[in-house]
Computed example of a mutant assay.
Amino acid sequence: MTHWLYLPELASTGTAAVLEDTEAAHAVRARRLREGDVVCVFDGAGRTAAARISEVIKRPLKVHLALEAQQHWALPEVRIHLTSALPKGDRQTTMLDMVTQLGMTDFTPVNFERSVSRAGTGSQDRWRRVLIESCKQSQRPWMPLVHSSIDLAEWISGPSDDGVVNLVAHKEGESRSAVIEESLVEAKQVRLLVGPEGGLSESEFARLHQTQTTMVSLGEGVLRVEAG
């Protein structure tokens, strides 16, 4: 298996590049890569390139790469925008890791009446590190976009044009197969709203029922936020 490494400046790089700090340590200490090994570098904006490790300098740790021709990948045909309440602590990391590997293209935290956690100082930097690692694991050239927190009113006033499907995860919603058959076939963007651990309040549930959204059930049980 070819290992992926993150090189954000790939677009402006010629035939040679250098990995330093965290990414160099990941390549040498975590992946045990050595001179002569072939890897794939990506910038998170759709560009990838095959590269061969030409030299490893141990102090300070640097990994020199010889790059081949770059490839630019098209954006996914359907944007999957997860708009969700935040779970507590490390479960935020679990959620973002899993949904990135599954194909999420956008993430927006949503504040609800019963939210148990909100985005704080440094959250976006921490989440970005998670997204990078998830893209390397799943070999995804496009890193998901992380947007600023919104409240439910802002979500409701969001796009509802042709090609945009607005879904709300709820135990009493329609089955997944029915929604996919009726709503998702021609979708260009899917916005999935996942509520907080305490569930939607009565007023929030009523407001959503008055909008052009579809309640969708993800199973018979009540799932954790990060599993939604």
Results as ranks from 00 to 15, higher is better:
203 S>T: 13
228 G>N: 10
120 G>S: 04
220 E>N: 13
26 H>V: 11
179 V>Q: 01
172 E>L: 09
12 S>D: 15
66 A>Q: 12
36 G>S: 06
227 A>W: 12
103 G>I: 05
206 A>F: 07
164 V>I: 11
13 T>P: 04
191 R>D: 07
91 R>P: 15
69 A>Y: 07
141 P>W: 14
223 L>Q: 07
161 D>K: 12
203 S>K: 06
190 V>E: 01
1 M>Y: 14
147 H>C: 08
46 G>W: 03
84 S>F: 02
129 R>A: 12
187 A>W: 11
76 P>H: 07
85 A>I: 10
80 I>F: 13
111 N>V: 14
227 A>I: 07
23 E>V: 06
41 V>A: 02
89 G>Y: 08
210 Q>I: 13
91 R>Q: 08
87 P>E: 06
166 N>A: 08
44 G>H: 06
50 A>L: 15
116 V>G: 00
139 Q>Y: 02
38 V>R: 01
217 S>C: 02
205 F>H: 15
117 S>H: 09
3 H>R: 12
30 A>D: 01
124 Q>H: 14
45 A>T: 15
39 V>Q: 07
13 T>C: 09
168 V>R: 00
158 G>F: 07
132 I>M: 03
34 R>C: 08
191 R>Q: 05
225 V>R: 01
88 K>T: 04
222 V>L: 06
137 Q>M: 02
84 S>M: 02
204 E>F: 05
68 E>V: 12
35 E>W: 12
79 R>F: 09
90 D>H: 07
165 V>L: 04
142 W>Q: 05
134 S>K: 00
121 T>E: 15
161 D>Y: 11
201 S>W: 03
170 H>V: 01
62 K>R: 14
222 V>Y: 10
220 E>H: 14
106 D>A: 05
69 A>D: 13
118 R>H: 15
94 T>W: 15
217 S>D: 00
102 L>T: 03
190 V>S: 04
219 G>L: 09
36 G>I: 13
172 E>D: 15
218 L>H: 02
124 Q>A: 07
78 V>I: 03
142 W>Y: 08
35 E>D: 02
134 S>W: 10
83 T>Y: 09
67 L>Y: 12
6 Y>C: 13
97 D>T: 14
202 E>Q: 02
98 M>C: 04
142 W>E: 04
125 D>T: 15
217 S>F: 00
